[in-house]
Write a protein that binds this DNA or RNA. Structure first.
Length: 506
RNA sequence: GGCGCAUUGGUGUAGUUGGUUAACACGCUGCCCUCUCAAGGCAGAGAUCACGGGUUCGAGUCCCGUAUGCGCUGCCA
């Protein structure tokens, strides 16, 4: 039997990283087992579903490299089937019409309302099977329905017994029928509800394994009952531990902002493979200790058995830009940027430079070799793709900013630099060929002759050439910048030092 | 309130059928390297395995209880 799994998000907002992880696990399992990975958009809530959200889900999956195998299924298109199935259950006596007028519920206060009602019911000892319409004679039920009276359809759950299923991650699960109410399948306006739609669609799509968030674990019992009422084979279930905020609370956009949205990672310079790798490690662990895994290896090592049970905390610090998302995710991204094959990184750098208006077509033509060497040189200390256009700006443009701390530390402290730097430029102009070794020799000799430490000139040069206090080995930077740009930038500090003197700032 | 699930250093996780000093990664500290910052190398701090009982010669690993957290409990998904 071919394995068929699905990712079934509701398009009511951005793609949440928790949902993205569910998609990843489903995808990995399908690829590992040679099965099919399907996508179903659960847009039954017409009020909240948006096309924009669907688009962002599609984009997010594409970004992560999770391709799906068959046509996307839109759940709303199946509504007629869902309704028909519910009616069949009514005819078969497995569900019944509930003519109780609809209770108005305010979305914002439902949770509280549920708890209050449950408390009250517990105190009074209410029977879940006490619905007055549950055992209404078929003739009367039919007559009222034909007469046009509005009704909801509820599944008729047996008075005695238990449901069982074996969850691949959480083990055997059992729930007494007494704990389950006669769930509503169809609203009184005829609209099919979640549990019904999911089950019908999963049957229809031939889903063999349902892999989803643990928040559905207890609901699964209801769904098992539905499969049974429908006479369908119950699939295998594997529930995933949830991803929580640092305070162990729910990770939500409302409270935590953009860190929970997958597209944020794309927009803030993450390499897809890095984020995918990080996500895979949240709630799942490989059989060995190797954590950095290219996609093929992830597929090879993935197994449902490796899924954990404890909820994971997504560790980020809301008000600290340095730790805006999980440290390990940031580290992993840096790791990928500095170690991934250069040919794979190049297009990403290109996209970033293009977005920052720093891209020049020559980089893929006459200056291709230079471009590759430059990226290779600077990639090693970058954390995100954004760094190529920020800290790395000076490599690609004459219009770059000077880091204030760098200027203070490397330039302002030594007034002699005003004369030394242009003199150094003169000296470097003589260097031929302009290679890192030759430049080093020239600079060190110049330092000797002028009686200053080489480090002084090196650090000052770094700031003059790149605007930064930190960066790659300076002689490599000289070589990459080239003779012309290097000497020009060394000299460009003179008027600037003059200005400082006038201000009495030196 | 009821039911369910979970609980290993700050975070993510390993811990095989219970058996010597609880392992790995991120983060953190120090040292080396050095033109800076990373990377890398080395060293280190940090966990009485939520708590309390029990079973056992022996428990992170089994049992019971408690606490805490999360989830579900809706004519939302």
């Amino acid at each position: 039997m071919t394995i068929r799994v699905r990712f079934a998000p509701s398009p009511t907002g951005y793609l949440h990283i928790g949902a993205a992880r569910s998609a990843l696990f489903n995808w990995l399992f399908a690829r590992k087992m040679g099965g099919k990975f399907l996508l179903r958009i659960e847009d039954t809530d017409l009020q909240r579903s948006t096309e924009e959200s669907t688009r962002s889900i599609l984009e997010g999956l594409a970004w992560l490299g999770l391709d799906y195998d068959e046509e996307v299924v839109f759940q709303s298109a199946n509504a007629p089937k869902h309704k028909a199935a519910a009616q069949r259950l009514v005819q078969a006596g497995k569900a019944y019409r509930d003519f109780t007028p609809k209770e108005q519920r305010n979305d914002a206060t439902v949770k509280q309302g549920i708890a209050d009602r449950a408390r009250a019911q517990a105190a009074e000892g209410v029977d879940q099977r006490a619905n007055p319409y549950r055992d209404l004679p078929k003739e009367e039920s039919d007559r009222r329905a034909v007469a046009g009276e509005a009704y909801a359809v509820r599944l008729k759950i047996a008075r005695e017994g238990k449901t069982h299923f074996e969850d691949i991650a959480y083990g055997p699960q059992e729930r007494d029928y007494a704990e389950i109410e006669d769930l509503v399948l169809l609203r009184s306006d005829g609209h099919p509800l979640y549990n019904l739609s999911v089950v019908i669609d999963d049957i229809e799509m031939g889903i063999t394994h349902v892999i989803r968030g643990q928040d559905h674990l207890t609901n699964t019992h209801k769904q098992v009952l539905l499969y049974q009422a429908l006479g369908a084979k119950v699939p295998q279930f594997a529930h995933l531990p949830l991803i929580l905020a640092p305070n162990k609370g729910k990770l939500s956009k409302r409270k935590h902002g953009e860190v929970v949205s997958l597209t944020t990672y794309r927009d803030r310079g993450f390499v897809p493979a890095a984020f995918r790798n990080f996500l895979a490690l949240l709630g799942w662990s490989p059989p060995d200790e190797k954590e950095i895994m290219p996609l093929a290896e992830l597929v090879e090592k993935f197994s449902l058995e490796g899924i954990g049970r404890a909820n994971a905390i997504f560790n980020f610090q809301e008000n600290d830009p340095r730790h805006w998302t999980d440290d390990k995710a940031l580290w992993m991204n840096a790791e990928y940027i500095r170690t991934m094959p250069l040919v794979e990184l190049l297009p990403m750098v290109k996209a970033e430079l293009r977005a920052s208006k720093l891209w020049r077509e020559e980089y893929e033509d006459d200056e291709r070799e230079w471009f590759e060497k430059a990226v290779e040189l600077i990639r090693h200390r970058f954390f995100t793709l954004k760094d190529f256009s920020a800290q790395g700006r000076a490599y690609f443009s004459e219009d770059f900013d000077f880091d204030e701390a760098a200027v203070t530390k490397n330039l302002k402290k030594e007034p002699r630099l005003k004369e030394l730097l242009p003199a150094l430029a003169d000296r470097l102009e003589q260097v031929e060929p302009f290679t890192k070794d030759a430049v080093e020799a020239a600079l060190r000799q110049f330092a000797d002759e002028t009686g200053v430490k080489a480090g002084l000139l090196i650090n000052a040069s770094r700031t003059m050439l790149t605007g930064q206090a930190v960066g790659p080995s300076m002689f490599e930077v000289f070589e990459i910048m080239g003779q012309k740009r290097s000497t020009e930038r060394l000299r460009s500090g003179v008027p600037w030092f003059d200005a400082l003197e006038e201000l009495g700032d030196v």
